[in-house]
Simulated scan of single mutants.
Amino acid sequence: MNLEFCKKGNILIITLCGELDHNSAEEVRVRVDDRIDRDNIKKAVLDFSRVTFMDSSGIGAVLGRYKKLSNKGGMLCIAMPNKNVSRIFELAGLYKIIKNYDTVDEAVRCI
């Protein structure tokens, strides 16, 4: 999995590229947590537009980053998941706690 980081003001945008599964979830956890801690981030958008597959390990990685930011008084949202990934979020009940946006720009405006 490839990760791209971009800041817009005080919001970190993380673009995930590839498969978010048991092979890549630990790397995602470590790299995202490092960036959140290093830049003292409280708001983040996970851009799922280039994620082709996600399993339960991916759910855990997303939920962990949500909890990390929530504990700092911040928030996490996701943007642009494809229909298969969106279905996984829906079935896992994550949309009840993590907001989903149609575009990254919309997420940045609303977060």
Results as ranks from 00 to 15, higher is better:
residue 17 C to Y: 10
residue 73 G to S: 14
residue 79 A to M: 07
residue 65 R to I: 03
residue 12 L to M: 13
residue 16 L to E: 01
residue 3 L to M: 10
residue 97 I to Q: 00
residue 37 D to Y: 14
residue 61 A to E: 05
residue 52 T to R: 15
residue 110 C to F: 02
residue 97 I to K: 02
residue 41 I to C: 08
residue 35 R to W: 10
residue 35 R to K: 15
residue 77 C to Y: 00
residue 84 N to I: 11
residue 43 K to L: 13
residue 13 I to L: 15
residue 16 L to V: 10
residue 54 M to Y: 03
residue 53 F to K: 12
residue 28 V to E: 02
residue 32 V to C: 08
residue 55 D to F: 01
residue 21 D to R: 01
residue 23 N to H: 13
residue 22 H to W: 06
residue 44 A to W: 03
residue 101 Y to V: 02
residue 70 S to Q: 15
residue 84 N to T: 06
residue 74 G to Y: 02
residue 7 K to R: 11
residue 88 I to V: 09
residue 16 L to I: 13
residue 18 G to N: 05
residue 31 R to W: 11
residue 6 C to K: 13
residue 97 I to F: 07
residue 101 Y to F: 13
residue 24 S to Y: 03
residue 96 K to Y: 02
residue 45 V to F: 07
residue 50 R to F: 08
residue 47 D to L: 12
residue 108 V to G: 11
residue 109 R to E: 08
residue 81 P to W: 01
residue 23 N to D: 09
residue 88 I to D: 03
residue 22 H to N: 05
residue 93 G to D: 02
residue 29 R to F: 09
residue 26 E to V: 05
residue 93 G to V: 03
residue 63 L to Y: 09
residue 76 L to N: 00
residue 57 S to K: 11
residue 69 L to F: 12
residue 56 S to G: 13
residue 71 N to S: 11
residue 60 G to Q: 03
residue 10 N to E: 09
residue 16 L to W: 00
residue 38 R to F: 12
residue 48 F to H: 03
residue 103 T to D: 04
residue 42 K to Y: 14
residue 51 V to D: 00
residue 94 L to G: 00
residue 16 L to F: 14
residue 58 G to R: 01
residue 39 D to V: 10
residue 70 S to H: 15
residue 3 L to H: 09
residue 109 R to M: 12
residue 87 R to G: 10
residue 93 G to E: 00
residue 68 K to P: 06
residue 18 G to E: 01
residue 15 T to V: 02
residue 73 G to H: 14
residue 65 R to K: 11
residue 104 V to T: 04
residue 34 D to C: 02
residue 85 V to L: 00
residue 70 S to W: 13
residue 28 V to P: 05
residue 104 V to H: 07
residue 86 S to C: 06
residue 79 A to S: 14
residue 32 V to D: 01
residue 12 L to G: 10
residue 64 G to K: 02
residue 87 R to Q: 12
residue 70 S to C: 15
residue 8 K to R: 13
residue 16 L to P: 10
residue 20 L to I: 10
residue 104 V to C: 13
residue 6 C to N: 12
residue 102 D to E: 14
residue 23 N to V: 05
residue 34 D to W: 02
residue 105 D to E: 11
